[in-house]
């Protein structure tokens, strides 16, 4: 029983990080209908920048985190500008292909700069486990959960109430009508990419603190694609719930099934669930219903 709870709590924490990263997919999909296959590299770059600032320049964690986030935002902005903007108005598939190309290029750059050995974050959070009733949990998990929750709340408020957030939702609904309001659609795309880079970086840094950092961390980018699709690809609450479902199921698979089959099941679980759910709900759990009444 304690083991089960332990697995579930771990799943919730990891799943919440997935949800945050999936938000990046959702934003880009909502604004430009494209899927960003370079998201995993965004995650990796943000994480490495933060790690390098801490280890090589002795900058305190919080400051390093903020600088890494700013760096990611700029990276997202710039990449949107030079790589993706030429594809506005072209078929979506061209933009998706461009992100695949981008992903290889960024992966190459990361490899050149940081190599491929696993690095670890210096111990930032206290290592003394916290006892929550019967379960024992490392502080890094609690901090991760807290940071993710805070970020999700900030983004929710941003989209619900801020001028830019409303403009982003309007653009997702009807691009040309948004232009007729004087909304700069290019600017909205750029912001979507910047936010996607930020949430990826935060996700990477949190998971990096839990598991260490190497190039395979970018696989998380791909792993959260099922999360986003599960949630309906265009729904923010959907991404959150999708993240939690995948996180928990993954953790349970790792805890109960992997020892029986000798491991590896955990990694494919998200995709198995994805296929299964899409068979019944082709638009994901929370996919946008097209409102048609003219």
């Amino acid at each position: 029983m304690t083991f089960l709870l332990q697995m579930i709590v771990t799943g919730i924490v990891v799943g919440s990080v997935y949800a945050l990263v999936a938000l990046g997919f959702v934003l880009i999909y909502k604004s430009s209908d494209a899927i960003n296959f370079a998201q995993g590299e965004f995650l990796l770059i943000g994480t490495y920048v933060c790690l390098t600032l801490i280890t090589a320049y002795n900058i305190p964690f919080v400051a390093a985190l903020l600088i890494a986030l700013m760096f990611s935002a700029v990276l997202g902005f710039v990449i949107e500008r030079i790589v993706l903007r030429p594809f506005i108005g072209e078929p979506v598939i061209s933009m998706i292909m461009a992100t695949i190309g981008l992903s290889s290029v960024l992966a190459g750059i990361v490899h050149i700069i940081w190599g491929h050995e696993t690095r670890v974050f210096p111990k930032i959070f206290s290592e003394k486990p916290v006892n929550l009733g019967e379960i024992v949990i490392a502080p890094v998990y609690l901090w991760s959960l807290l940071i993710v929750v805070v970020m999700l709340v900030i983004f929710t408020l941003f989209f619900k109430y801020s001028k830019l957030g409303i403009a982003m939702r309007a653009t997702a609904d009807d691009q040309q009508a948004a232009m007729s309001m004087g909304i700069s659609v290019k600017m909205i795309f750029a912001v979507a990419w910047a936010i996607a880079a930020i949430v990826s970086a935060v996700g990477g840094i949190l998971l990096g603190n839990i598991n260490g950092v190497n190039a395979s961390l970018s696989a998380i980018g791909l792993k959260v694609l099922p999360v986003a699709i599960l949630g309906g690809l265009d729904s923010i609450p959907g991404a959150i719930i999708g993240g939690l479902i995948i996180g928990i199921l993954e953790s349970l698979t790792g805890g109960y099934l992997d020892p029986l089959v000798g491991g590896g099941l955990k990694e494919v679980m998200p995709f198995v669930i994805l296929v299964f759910i899409l068979m019944f709900k082709p638009y994901g759990l929370f996919g946008k219903k097209e409102i048609e009444r003219v």
Partner: peptide
């Protein structure tokens, strides 16, 4: 061309 998924008030703010 109203923004279908936005509330009436959010449409006005847009």
């Amino acid at each position: 061309r109203v923004f279908k998924h936005l509330s009436v008030e959010d449409n006005l703010i847009a």
